[in-house]
Nucleic acid binder design. Structure first.
Lengths: 128, 128
DNA sequence: AACAGTGTATTATGCTACTAGTACACTAGA
DNA sequence: TCTAGTGTACTAGTAGCATAATACACTGTT
């Protein structure tokens, strides 16, 4: 069991997100081998086919490279990983700003709201 | 047609979000009548049943009140609307922070990233 | 050559959520 | 009473997702 998945988003997407986060955080380095399709399926408690779909997506994004008979590896092209980190950051910020603007919040309210939230929740970090 | 919907999220959710935003921004006031199920369906270009599902959800959240034979109205209970605004704000900030933390960003990076994004995109606001 | 481990492809099945169509129930007003 | 406008309920169709089972293709090792 690799932790539960959210039912509102496809598993293959969530699994891909997890792997992306591991890469971005440096827990998976360029050239590292990912668990085989079958092993990852056991670890995550999902069907091998679902894992394969995740790997296929990641390969399409050029984040990993699959070699038949050998396994699936994190790309050695660090540029792509740097860009991935920036893209995801930009995407999340953009979504956040878009949502807040739709609700009528000003830019100052966003920044102050974020600051305030971080202050209040600073100590309660490692909760479940 | 009231603008396109995203295919990755249920229409009834997106429609509910739109209405919530209108309320929060004050474009819909307490006691205001919403378009009838059928009229809203035409406006939004969706099935009346989808609209009804949206209205049902909003009623469950006590944001609107449906009166058979009369219509659907924004609640007169302003406390709920104030709380709604706060809840949505908190929710979006919380999601944002959670996502950024998962990617390994520090709190300072979040705030600076947000500031930088707002600076860069300040003039390009009213784009399509 | 044989084998084990790997990725890939195919087909079928069940499930769930969303959407659509249609009919019913209630209210207000003419 | 009738009618138009409203919310509500029911049934069915559709699509995407996850699973399952199986077979194939390639690589490295023995």
């Amino acid at each position: 069991m690799g932790g539960a998945f959210n039912t509102s988003t496809p598993i293959y997407i969530q699994l891909g997100d997890r792997i992306n986060h591991q890469i971005i955080r440096g827990e998976l380095l360029p050239g590292d081998k990912l668990p085989s399709v079958r092993e990852m399926a056991v670890q995550a408690g999902v069907n091998p086919n679902t894992v394969q779909r995740t790997y296929r997506e990641l390969e399409r994004m050029e984040i990993v490279e699959s070699r038949r008979g050998q396994g699936t590896f994190v790309t050695e092209n660090e540029d792509i990983l740097v860009k991935l980190r920036e893209q995801l950051k930009e995407m999340h910020i953009s979504h956040f700003v878009g949502d807040m603007k739709m609700m009528g919040y000003t830019e100052n309210e966003m920044i102050n709201g974020l600051r305030h939230y971080l202050d209040v929740n600073r100590e309660e970090d490692g909760l479940s």
